[in-house]
């Protein structure tokens, strides 16, 4: 089997001609794990030489088994974690810290408990200095978008997990980032809500031309949303293969798309890559049970 350590050499797919928006260039990250009982701290390599591009207006999904470093990579891109080696480039410029050109949807909604749903959505806008009236207006329309009109004045502890996740989504949308980083944003939702929000995400993305890097465990979701899928191997995390999803956009709904033979083919192929990624490349890194 071929292992692509370098970025996909030949750009393919319908988005191939677009300029690169986000470039992940040979990014490596090692955590120092504190040694137990006087043992020296041991290095634990989470990402090794990871490289891929996301082009303007693309949705790219990261898939890979649990613990392969997807969240870590997203946090590095956002500037929440430092990288050890490599570069993150946005529009060709290296980024070194957080910026409002990138928005983040957390795996756990991470709402601020002292703010109501609407106030949480307004958080980023407040920091940008958007006037109050405009903030309220925007929060209202975003609440509508994620189907939470009635919850504007509720506090996070009064919301279900799925509702909190939707508020987190709206909070990231609010600042209209050029790049949106989403860490399994729909995994906590029920199937119905998930489908609605997937469709909405595609619609919003088509409207705003946002560039999205999307982490998911759900291969159907990855195929449905993405222009390309980056399949990761684990321990240490690295790019295994980049898979094109050739369905043109706007796309048919997922249930219809699912019945296409091409869908099945991609799904099978991706699943295989992830499965194989688990079996060793010898001595790739430290053993660590996920």
């Amino acid at each position: 089997m071929t292992v692509s350590t370098a970025p996909a050499p030949i750009a393919t797919g319908p988005t191939r001609n677009r300029p690169v928006k986000l470039k992940v260039d040979r990014v490596s990250k090692t955590f120092l794990l504190r040694g137990e009982r006087g043992e020296p701290p041991s290095p634990f390599t989470v990402l090794r030489e990871m490289s891929f591009d996301v082009r303007e207006g693309e949705i790219v999904s990261l898939v890979g088994e649990s613990g392969c470093g997807k969240t870590t990579l997203l946090r590095i891109i956002q500037g929440l974690n430092r990288l050890d080696r490599g570069t993150i480039l946005v529009d060709g410029h290296a980024v070194s810290g957080p910026g409002r050109d990138r928005g983040f949807v957390f795996q756990q909604a991470s709402l601020l408990p002292w703010r109501t749903a609407a106030e949480n959505i307004e958080f980023g806008l407040e920091l940008q200095g958007v006037p109050k009236a405009a903030r309220h207006e925007k929060a209202r329309s975003l609440l509508h978008l994620v189907g939470l009109e009635g919850a504007a004045n509720k506090y996070p502890h009064q919301l279900s997990g799925g509702m909190q996740q939707r508020v987190g989504l709206a909070r990231a949308f609010a600042i209209e980032p050029a790049i949106l980083l989403m860490d399994e944003p729909f995994s906590a939702l029920d199937a119905q809500t998930r489908e609605v929000l997937q469709r909405e995400l595609l619609r919003i993305q088509a409207e705003t031309r946002m560039t999205i890097l999307f982490v998911t465990h759900d291969l159907d979701e990855a195929i449905y949303l993405s222009d390309r899928i980056v399949a990761l191997g684990a321990h240490p995390g690295r790019v295994r293969e980049i898979i094109d999803v050739p369905f043109p956009k706007p796309r048919q709904d997922l249930p219809i798309l699912r019945s296409e033979p091409e869908f099945t083919r991609i799904r099978k192929k991706t699943a295989e890559i992830i499965r194989n990624a688990r079996s060793p490349e010898p001595a790739a890194g430290q053993e660590k049970t996920p």
């Binding site: 500037g79 929440l80 810290g97 957080p98 409002r100 957390f106 991470s110 958080f123 980023g124 920091l127």
Partner: peptide, 15 residues
Amino acid sequence: SFIDVGRAFAATERE
């Protein structure tokens, strides 16, 4: 995780 939210939205130290 609250601190992360602030940082993700590029809050200054004062904010």
